[in-house]
Measured scan of single mutants.
Amino acid sequence: TTVHLNGVTYTFPNPEEARKFVEKLAKTLNLKVEVHNGTYHIE
């Protein structure tokens, strides 16, 4: 599972880890999250 954040790409072997990371980040920084083909894009 891949996460794109400010031009940096993070790869998680575990989709659940990626989801938790994204949710925590989005909540902390009040960001918008979009998912395209299983890839998270955070703005």
Rank of each mutant, 00 (worst) to 15 (best):
K24D: 15
Y40E: 03
P13H: 09
L25F: 04
A26P: 03
L29H: 15
Y40H: 03
K32H: 08
L5M: 13
T1P: 06
V22C: 08
P15D: 13
K20S: 10
V22H: 01
H41A: 03
L5Q: 02
N37T: 02
Y40Q: 03
T11V: 13
F21G: 01
L31Q: 03
T9M: 13
P13E: 11
E17R: 09
V35I: 14
Y10K: 03
V22L: 04
L5H: 08
T1Q: 07
N6H: 08
T2C: 13
Y40D: 03
L5K: 02
P13Y: 08
N14E: 05
T2M: 14
K24W: 15
P13W: 08
H36T: 07
L5N: 02
E23M: 06
N14A: 05
V3R: 00
K27V: 11
N37W: 03
G7V: 02
N37G: 07
V33L: 04
E17C: 11
V35A: 03
K20E: 11
Y40I: 13
T28Q: 13
L31A: 09
A26F: 06
P15K: 09
T1S: 12
V22N: 00
N37R: 03
E17A: 14
E43Q: 13
N14S: 12
T11K: 12
K20Q: 11
T9A: 12
T9F: 10
E17V: 11
E43V: 15
Y40C: 05
N6G: 08
T28H: 14
Y10V: 07
E23T: 05
T39F: 05
Y10G: 00
K24G: 11
V35N: 05
V3W: 01
T28D: 14
K27H: 13
V35Q: 05
H4W: 14
E34C: 11
N6A: 09
E23V: 07
H41L: 09
K32G: 02
E16Y: 09
T1R: 10
T1L: 07
H36A: 06
L29R: 02
E23H: 05
L25A: 04
P13Q: 10
P13S: 11
T1A: 10
E43S: 14
V3P: 00
Y10W: 11
I42T: 03
L29G: 14
L5G: 01
Y40T: 04
A26D: 09
T39Y: 06
V22G: 01
L5D: 02
A26H: 08
I42W: 02
L31M: 08
T28G: 08
E17T: 12
N37I: 02
K20L: 11
N14P: 00
A26W: 05
V3Y: 01
H36F: 10
H4F: 14
V35M: 13
V33I: 14
T9W: 08
N37S: 04
H4A: 07
E23W: 04
V8S: 08
L31T: 04
E34F: 14
A18F: 04
V22T: 02
N37C: 11
V35Y: 15
R19T: 07
Y10L: 14
T28W: 14
A26C: 07
G7E: 05
Y10C: 07
V33H: 01
T39S: 14
N30R: 03
F12Q: 00
E16S: 09
N37E: 08
L25M: 05
H4T: 09
T9G: 06
L5P: 00
V33W: 13
N14M: 04
E43P: 02
V35L: 13
P15Q: 11
I42F: 08
A26T: 11
E17F: 08
A26M: 14
T2S: 11
H4L: 14
H4Q: 10
V33A: 03
I42C: 04
T9N: 07
E23A: 06
T28R: 13
N30V: 08
I42L: 15
Y10E: 01
G7W: 05
F12N: 00
V33S: 01
E43R: 08
Y10T: 03
A18H: 01
K20F: 06
H41Q: 04
H4P: 01
K32M: 05
L5I: 13
H4Y: 14
A18V: 06
L29W: 09
T28Y: 15
T2R: 14
G38A: 03
L5F: 15
F21M: 03
T9P: 12
K32Y: 05
K20R: 12
H36W: 09
P13C: 12
N6S: 08
N30Y: 06
T39L: 05
P15Y: 07
V3D: 00
A26N: 10
K24R: 13
A26R: 11
V35R: 02
E23R: 04
V33P: 01
P15E: 11
L29S: 08
A18K: 01
H41S: 04
A26K: 13
G38S: 03
L31I: 14
H4I: 15
T11H: 13
F21T: 01
E16F: 09
V22E: 01
G7M: 05
V22W: 02
K20Y: 07
E23Q: 06
E34G: 04
F21N: 00
I42P: 03
Y40L: 09
T1H: 07
T11R: 12
E16T: 10
N6P: 06
T2N: 12
T1N: 09
V3T: 01
F12E: 00
L5W: 15
L31W: 05
G7P: 01
I42R: 01
H41C: 08
T11Y: 12
F12Y: 03
H36R: 13
V8P: 00
A18T: 05
G38Q: 04
F21I: 01
G7K: 07
V8G: 04
L31H: 03
K24P: 02
T39C: 06
K24N: 14
G38L: 03
H4M: 13
N37F: 04
K32S: 06
G38W: 02
T28A: 08
N37Y: 04
H4V: 15
K24E: 15
F12G: 00
E23D: 09
N14C: 12
T28L: 14
V8E: 07
F21Y: 06
E34A: 09
G38E: 04
F12I: 01
E43A: 10
L31E: 01
K20C: 12
V33R: 00
E34N: 09
K24Y: 15
R19A: 10
A18L: 04
E16N: 08
E34H: 13
K24V: 13
H41M: 08
K32N: 05
V3H: 00
N37V: 02
T2L: 14
E34S: 13
T9D: 06
E16A: 09
V8Q: 11
V35S: 03
K24M: 14
E16D: 12
T1Y: 06
R19W: 13
E17G: 09
L25I: 10
I42E: 03
G7D: 06
F12R: 00
R19S: 06
T39K: 06
E23P: 00
K20P: 00
T39R: 06
V8M: 10
V33N: 01
T9K: 13
P13L: 10
K20T: 09
E43W: 15
L31C: 10
P15L: 10
E16C: 12
H36Y: 10
A18Q: 01
A26S: 12
R19N: 05
H4D: 05
E34P: 01
V33T: 02
E34Y: 14
P15R: 10
E17S: 13
K27I: 13
V35T: 04
V8H: 11
R19P: 00
T11G: 05
L31R: 01
N30H: 10
G7H: 08
H41G: 02
T2D: 12
A18W: 02
T1C: 08
V35G: 02
N6D: 10
L5S: 03
E16W: 09
E17P: 01
L25E: 03
K24S: 13
V33Q: 01
H41T: 08
L29M: 12
E34K: 09
T9V: 15
V22F: 03
L31K: 02
K24H: 14
K32D: 03
R19I: 09
T1V: 11
G7Y: 05
H4E: 08
T28K: 12
V35P: 02
I42K: 02
A18M: 04
K27C: 14
L25T: 03
L31S: 03
K24L: 14
T39E: 15
N14T: 11
G38N: 06
H41P: 03
H36I: 15
V3A: 03
N30F: 07
N30G: 10
G38I: 02
E23S: 04
T2E: 12
V35D: 04
N30D: 09
F21H: 01
Y10M: 11
P15C: 09
F12T: 00
H41R: 04
T28C: 12
T39V: 15
N30I: 08
A18Y: 01
V3S: 00
L25G: 00
R19L: 12
Y10Q: 02
T39I: 15
K24A: 14
E17W: 09
T28M: 10
Y40S: 03
E16I: 09
T11M: 12
F12A: 00
N14D: 10
Y40M: 07
F21P: 00
E34R: 08
A18S: 03
V33Y: 08
T39A: 15
T28P: 04
V3M: 03
P13D: 10
T39N: 15
